[in-house]
Write a protein that binds this DNA or RNA. Sequence first.
DNA 1: CGATGGGTTGATCCGTATCAACTGAAGTGG
DNA 2: CCACTTCAGTTGATACGGATCAACCCATCG
Lengths: 256, 256
Amino acid sequence: MSLACPSARANAPATATATAIEPLKTRCSNCSLRDICLPCGMTPADVNGLDGLGFNRTKVKAGQALYHEGQAFRNIYAVRMGTFKSSLTLADGREQVSGFQMAGELMGLDGIANGAYASNSTALEDTEVCAIPYDQISGLAATSTDLQQAVSRLMSREIVREHSLMMLLGSMNAEERLAAFLLNLSQRLKLRGYSASEFHLRMSRAEIGSYLGMKLETVSRTFSAFQQEGILEVDKRHIRILDAAALKRIFETRVH
Amino acid sequence: MSLACPSARANAPATATATAIEPLKTRCSNCSLRDICLPCGMTPADVNGLDGLGFNRTKVKAGQALYHEGQAFRNIYAVRMGTFKSSLTLADGREQVSGFQMAGELMGLDGIANGAYASNSTALEDTEVCAIPYDQISGLAATSTDLQQAVSRLMSREIVREHSLMMLLGSMNAEERLAAFLLNLSQRLKLRGYSASEFHLRMSRAEIGSYLGMKLETVSRTFSAFQQEGILEVDKRHIRILDAAALKRIFETRVH
DNA sequence: CGATGGGTTGATCCGTATCAACTGAAGTGG
DNA sequence: CCACTTCAGTTGATACGGATCAACCCATCG
C-alpha cells in the first residue's frame, strides 16, 4: 500500500557474507530506481550529494546471505535487482520470515538500533544490491536536511509496514492473509513496471507460510481454493490473478 | 528486551484531541526520565540543545485519545507518566492493538512516513506526555549529529520491536504469547524502578488479546492456567509472578 | 436497585496443524 | 542415459488449540 523509496547504487566494502564483485560506484542521479529508492523525494542538489558517495554494487547469488543476525552493522542495502527475504532465527533454530524485499527497497535498517543487524537477509534469486555505508549517509545527513528526512521517512514507512503486518497476523484467517499477500506483491510489482496480474513467486510455500503465520500445507490448500473459486490460476510458483476484485473483497472484509 | 529511549519534557501546541494543560516547558536535562527517553545516549551539550526547545507538557485523561489515525502529524510524543495503547482500526470498525507505551517511550513515529499518524494512541489511565514538535526536532537534528542518531536509533528500535512481535504472532501459541507479554512488561517496569514480579495491568483482557492475537476468553483461561501451575498469582488486573523461570522456559522453548 | 462492564468458566465447533502418502521436476552418479 | 535421491508442492485423514456461544459472578455507578 505504501510506496517504498529506498536507494540503489553501488560501491562499498563487501560484508562478510556477500561476494563483492564489480566495485564500480553507481550514482543515484542516473539510476533507474531513483524514484522508488532512497533519493525519492529529494531535491536534485541533494541527490548529487549522494552521487558523491558513490555506493558499491554487490552481487549476491541465490541462497546466499547478505548479512546475518548479530553481525556488525555497517551498511544499509538497497535492492537493485532480484528478491530478498528477511528472517529471524527462533530459539529452536527454525526461521521466521519477516519480509520480502524487491528492487528499490531498503534492508538493514534494524541494525541502527544496536550496531548489529537484528535479522538475516538472504537472496531468493541471483541479486544485486547497493551497499550504503551508514556512517557516510549519516555524515551527509548532517549537512542535508533533505536526506535526513528521506531516511526518517523510510524508517517510518518500515514501522507502518510492520504495523499492518501485525494486523494481518493478529486478526486475519488463512484466505485473508494470502489475499493480502498477493495484493501487496501485485501492487509492488506493478509499481516496478511488471504485470500486476501475472507473476512468478520467488519464495517457497514454506517461506510464504512462515511470513504469513501459517503452515506450508495451508498455503498450498488456500492457493488451490482460490484456483477452484476462479480467483487465481496457479501453476507452482507461477500465479495469474483472474479476479482481483474478489481478492480485494476477501482482504477487505477481514472478517474474523 | 531492548531499552527504549524516548523523550520526556513539556510545552507544545495541543493536538486536536488532547487536553492542553500546564503549558509549562520542561527541560530534558533535569527530567527524571532522561536516561530512558529521547536524550538517552546524547552528550550533555546536545541535551542542552533539546532544553532550548522546551517541550510542552500535556495531560491526557484515561480513555482519551492523544491522536487518531489520519490526523495531521505534528508531534512525536514521549510518555511522562501513565500508560498508552496504540491501535489500528480495522475495516469493520474493530480495533487491533499494536502496542502499549509507558514512561520514557515514544509515540507517533509512524506519522513521519506520510505526514499523518498511521495509528491511534489512547490513554489507559490518567497520563502526561511531552509533545515534541517534529519540525523543531528535525531542525535541531540538522545541527546535531548526536540528536539525529538518537532519533534514528529510536526508530530502528521500534522496527526491531515490531519484528519480535511479528515473530510472536507468527509462531507462538497462547501460553508462549502471554508468557512473552508478561516478561516484557515485567522487564520494562523493572527498568523504571517498579517491581518486576508484582504489578497492576493497565489494560483489559480484550486489549491484551487484541495485542497478542487471541480472544479475551483465551487470555483469561491462560492466566488461570498459569495460576493453576503456580507460575502466577492473578487477581483481576493484579499480577504476581511466582515462578519467573517457568515463564522464561515457556517463552524460550517456543515450541509450535 | 437495576444496569453496565470486566472477568471467569463451561460446552461445543471450526480452522488450521499435523501426519502421511503421493507426484513431478531437478540433480547426481554409476 | 537411466536408476536413485532429493526437494517442492499437492492432497487426504485426523487431531487439537483456540474461537465461539453462553451462563454466571462481581464491582461500580446512576
